[in-house]
Simulated assay, not measured.
Amino acid sequence: MAVEGGAGTGSTGGGSAGGSGSRLTPTWWPRWGAGVVVAGVAALVALGIHSLVPAVPLLTAAVGLGMIAGQIPASQRLLDTVLKPGIALAARRLLRIGIVLLGLKLSLFDIAGLGWPTIIVIVLIVGITFSATLGLGKLLRLPGTQPILIAAGFSICGASAVGAMSAVTRSKDEDQATPIALVTLCGTLAIFILPVLRLPLGLDEQQFGMWVGLSVHDVGQVVATAQIAGPAALAVAVVVKLTRVLTLAPMVAIVGLVERARDARELRAGAGNTAEIKRSGSGTSAKRPAIVPLFIAGFLAAVVVRTVVPLPGELLSVADMLQTALLAMALFALGSNIRFAALARTGWRALIVGLASWALIAVLSLGAVAILT
């Protein structure tokens, strides 16, 4: 509600300011330019925070900066008016480009090296966590598409999964805010809690790395958590985590099929006769989400390229830096849509779902480590 109200205020009360701004802005400067520049500056600030405090992942810092900006009245007004087009572009298009580039981190040979038992366990944990979180979210009557977005974020790959799933579910910005806040909170807690539990649980480096890769949300959070136990733990954690990321494609495809089937049922139920079905069918089918969005297909293509093409290390390094920068800008933009005042009204139910999902995936992953090692 806070987002919609701010946008409405900006469009009515800020009309003269917008006109003045348009006169001062060069004709070659795009409407989205200011928002993208701000997101880029925020990404650089997040990099500085990460450099000063390595325990804070860069992407987590970017989300945090966005969340802070979203609470300050002065920046709220800018985010909801002059910066809005660029922030929206960063939160959607730049996020999707970053997800495509994320595929270059993963080779199918790395996945095969884990062995079939580990791959099957990863798929099972993702499926169980996703289904249980979705069911709990619906049971507690979370609004909009929050249940499925929280399920994707906690079971697959954090904020990136939330952004990817929101494309196929056509989620509103306010529905994305709560899941992103929750995966950021729980992923940050994992950086400090999981290493403390390592010794009492008797986990060696490889076991700890597998536990982290199976249970922690964002890739950056996985790196920050696993590196505490050493390079062996980090190597295992990254491969396991990126294999979890690969499950994003089939999960999005499944949800896309479900969404299309639901649209078809609603169309048939709402049409009174054949002529109406034909009239409304063309319009509705155009609005149906793609079974596999283009950027998910691009992500899979990037994985295949990394597998079959011997890419030079310099190119992979540049792609990695670009991917990190784009995701940092996107996550700042997504974080800036979070309004704590709005979250407080329904936040306790979402918090229960998030903490329950986090506990479930941690316990399932720990059990899997015991079985596999």
Results as ranks from 00 to 15, higher is better:
residue 26 P to V: 07
residue 369 V to H: 04
residue 295 F to P: 11
residue 10 G to H: 08
residue 212 V to S: 11
residue 157 C to N: 00
residue 3 V to L: 15
residue 253 A to D: 06
residue 284 T to W: 09
residue 230 G to P: 03
residue 332 F to Q: 03
residue 280 S to A: 15
residue 365 S to F: 06
residue 320 D to Y: 10
residue 241 K to H: 08
residue 195 P to C: 05
residue 257 L to W: 06
residue 222 V to E: 00
residue 265 R to E: 14
residue 93 R to V: 06
residue 338 I to W: 13
residue 176 Q to Y: 02
residue 43 A to Y: 01
residue 86 G to T: 11
residue 208 F to L: 06
residue 172 K to A: 11
residue 282 S to T: 13
residue 190 A to I: 02
residue 95 L to M: 11
residue 75 S to A: 02
residue 362 A to Q: 02
residue 238 V to F: 02
residue 326 L to F: 14
residue 336 S to G: 09
residue 206 Q to P: 06
residue 308 V to A: 11
residue 162 V to Q: 00
residue 329 M to I: 07
residue 127 G to V: 02
residue 15 G to I: 13
residue 59 L to F: 05
residue 160 S to E: 03
residue 47 L to E: 05
residue 76 Q to M: 07
residue 58 L to I: 12
residue 339 R to T: 12
residue 231 P to R: 02
residue 363 V to W: 03
residue 294 L to M: 14
residue 86 G to E: 04
residue 194 L to N: 02
residue 266 E to Y: 13
residue 112 A to M: 07
residue 280 S to P: 07
residue 297 A to Y: 02
residue 90 A to C: 15
residue 77 R to S: 15
residue 275 A to D: 12
residue 184 T to Y: 04
residue 279 R to Y: 14
residue 26 P to N: 03
residue 368 A to Y: 05
residue 245 V to Q: 01
residue 236 V to A: 08
residue 25 T to V: 06
residue 63 V to G: 02
residue 90 A to D: 08
residue 350 A to W: 00
residue 207 Q to N: 06
residue 141 R to S: 04
residue 93 R to S: 08
residue 62 A to K: 04
residue 183 V to G: 12
residue 81 T to D: 13
residue 220 G to N: 05
residue 194 L to M: 10
residue 371 I to L: 15
residue 95 L to K: 03
residue 156 I to A: 08
residue 14 G to L: 08
residue 191 I to P: 03
residue 205 E to M: 12
residue 220 G to V: 10
residue 268 R to H: 13
residue 269 A to V: 13
residue 342 A to H: 13
residue 90 A to T: 11
residue 90 A to L: 11
residue 134 L to Q: 08
residue 40 G to L: 07
residue 83 L to E: 03
residue 81 T to V: 02
residue 91 A to F: 09
residue 212 V to Q: 09
residue 187 G to S: 10
residue 218 D to F: 04
residue 243 T to V: 05
residue 334 L to E: 05
residue 142 L to I: 03
residue 257 L to K: 07
residue 235 A to Y: 06
residue 263 D to T: 11
residue 31 R to H: 15
residue 322 L to F: 09
residue 272 G to H: 09
residue 40 G to Y: 04
residue 139 L to T: 14
